[in-house]
Design a protein around this nucleic acid. Structure first.
Length: 490
RNA sequence: CGGAGUGUAGCGCAGCCUGGUAGCGCAUCUGCUUUGGGAGCAGAGGGCCGGGGGUUCGAAUCCCUCCACUCCGACCA
């Protein structure tokens, strides 16, 4: 293989403006726009996920769904609307979600005296429904009916659905009023089983993040004030974004008997006595896409991790005018790649070559293949890795490419994962006291601080936390409870 | 919900201070020339200037009032 990349003195232009360094939040929005992942909708706080973005979500779903099923969980579906009385059953739960619930109060519209469509006054529901912000209560209600004996346990359920939380401030993928997710709900006979399950599901998520999304995060436990309303323990993966902020990438909760109590999930045990079940819940949402963008993207836009990329290899025929032989050749290469299990596509548009290239770059397609008319004659092609950029431009024979394509995709995955790992390491500072922590954030540090767990009890902690808009991200497993990771977050 | 800002062509913006009836760039369409890192020339189409009310002979521009969105906080996946 020969490297044909040309070196130029002038600074290469970036596809995304502003750059990450200039304005990270705006860069983020621009990347989404440029990659055509999603856009804001006419509905406040709700996004339209465009075909390319939805294809990405479907791949994440597929990868996670397989893993969930592999540990014995079954998919089911529960209603979007939850009776208000269900939500009110759990006091802590209400405190957590009441402020952000959308409520359905009527079942019919009619025209008023001004000819405007309004909810019909005589069509008011006896009991309002809440659009699910999460489904613990309605699934718990079903579990109560499905669980009579210890032989009915464990009960392992998952649903893929949308939920709604009326957020004050929204951002595409990271925080939207409506979002897509999976929520798993498991019930067990013993406390130990539930605890082990909450940990196990976090491992499942971590496997997804590391091996499918090429993201390395910190697995750990949430502190008491960051816990899910109603949980006795919440586990999380916190991922370092390029601007040093944390993204809570998923959560897994040990709910103890909280919901068993309020939903009445009882069973007759091995000893013949009636007892309450122990439950867990665990979720991962479209927010993972936000994490992927903010971790892997660069100033030219998105970089798709190969294993969830909707298109893994894009083939660009480079031609002066429509060249049927070249198009046929490109299509043939595509079919050969597909036969290897690779998601390949030919850009058949009649756009100019540079436009095709930039579109592929902005969409983050892992490998871009260019075939020109000279190369067609020689049986060669040129490919470029998205993660390494134009310097990686390589010309080789088509056979060489076919043989190495899967390896190259794996290499891109490893490269992205390494970057994520390295960033997590480099952007953490260890401190021994709260005073030291304060000094660091005072000097405009962006990243996490790892502090002794005792700082949480320091009387000044709450003040400093507020002053620098910090929060305890998690108590990382790696230090077995001795430390806490603190940082800014999304 | 507090603070700041922005709503003008599909997108990005100027015009507003100092009222006179709509402009630029990109995109789109047509034609010709180009084509291995974002093409050039010529022409064309496209606007209830966020909504409502007021002042005025006349409002994108001034005043009042809603509404929406973005950013920074608080709340949160």
């Amino acid at each position: 293989m020969t490297n044909v990349a040309t070196k130029t003195d002038k600074k290469p232009q970036t596809a995304i403006s502003p750059t990450r360094a200039e304005n990270f939040p705006e860069w983020y929005q621009e990347v989404i726009k440029a990659a055509e992942l999603a856009e804001n909708s006419p509905v406040r706080g709700c996004m339209i996920i465009k075909p390319y973005g939805y294809a990405l979500w479907e791949n994440i779903q597929k990868q996670l769904d397989d893993r969930i099923k592999a540990v014995g969980v079954e998919n089911a579906y529960f209603p979007l609307l939850i009776p208000l009385s269900f939500i009110s059953r759990e006091a802590e739960h209400i405190d957590g979600f009441a402020k952000e619930c959308a409520v359905v109060t009527h079942h019919r519209l009619e025209k008023n005296s001004e000819g405007k469509l309004v909810p019909a006054p005589d069509a008011e529901l006896e009991e309002p429904f809440v659009i699910r912000p999460t489904s613990e209560t309605i699934i718990g209600d079903a579990m109560a009916r499905w669980t009579q004996s210890y032989r009915d346990l464990p009960l392992l359920l998952n649903q893929w659905c949308n939920v709604m939380r009326w957020e004050m401030r929204t951002r595409l993928f990271l925080r939207t009023s409506e979002f897509l997710w999976q929520e798993g709900h498991n019930a067990f006979e013993t406390a130990d089983e539930a605890e082990a399950d909450a940990r196990k599901m976090l491992d499942v998520y971590n496997d997804l993040y590391v091996n499918a999304l090429a993201l390395s995060g910190f697995c750990g436990e949430k502190t008491a004030d960051e816990r899910f309303p109603g949980a006795i323990r919440t586990y999380t993966i916190e991922i370092m974004m390029q601007d040093g902020k944390a993204l809570q990438a998923c959560t897994s909760h040990n709910l103890g008997q909280t919901f068993a109590k309020s939903c009445d999930i009882k069973f007759q045990g091995r000893d013949g006595r009636e007892q309450l079940a122990w439950t867990t819940s665990w979720g991962l949402s479209t927010r993972s896409i936000g994490g992927l963008i903010m971790s892997h993207g660069d100033d030219d836009g998105l970089i798709m991790p190969p294993r969830v990329a909707p298109v893994q290899i894009i083939i660009l025929p480079i031609m002066k005018e429509k060249n049927p032989a070249l198009l046929e050749h490109a299509d043939h290469l595509k079919r050969n790649l597909q036969a290897l299990g690779i998601r390949a596509k030919v850009d058949t548009s009649d756009d100019r070559a540079p436009d095709k290239m930039w579109r592929a770059i902005k969409r983050g397609i892992p490998i871009r293949v260019e075939i020109g008319e000279r190369e067609l004659a020689e049986g060669k092609l040129t490919f470029t890795r998205r993660d390494l950029g134009r310097e990686s431009k390589t010309t080789c024979s088509e056979n060489e490419f076919l043989e190495s394509a899967q390896n190259t995709l794996d290499a891109i995955h490893e490269e992205l994962l390494n970057r994520s790992r390295t960033r997590a390491k480099e952007m953490i500072k260890n401190v021994t006291s709260l005073a030291e922590l304060k000094d660091i954030y005072q000097s405009n540090f962006s990243g996490f601080v790892k502090a002794p767990i005792a700082v949480l009890d320091d009387p000044d902690y709450q003040t400093i936390k507020k002053e620098y808009s910090l929060s305890a991200r998690c108590i990382p497993f790696e230090d077995e409870g001795a430390t806490v990771l603190i940082g800014k977050s999304y």
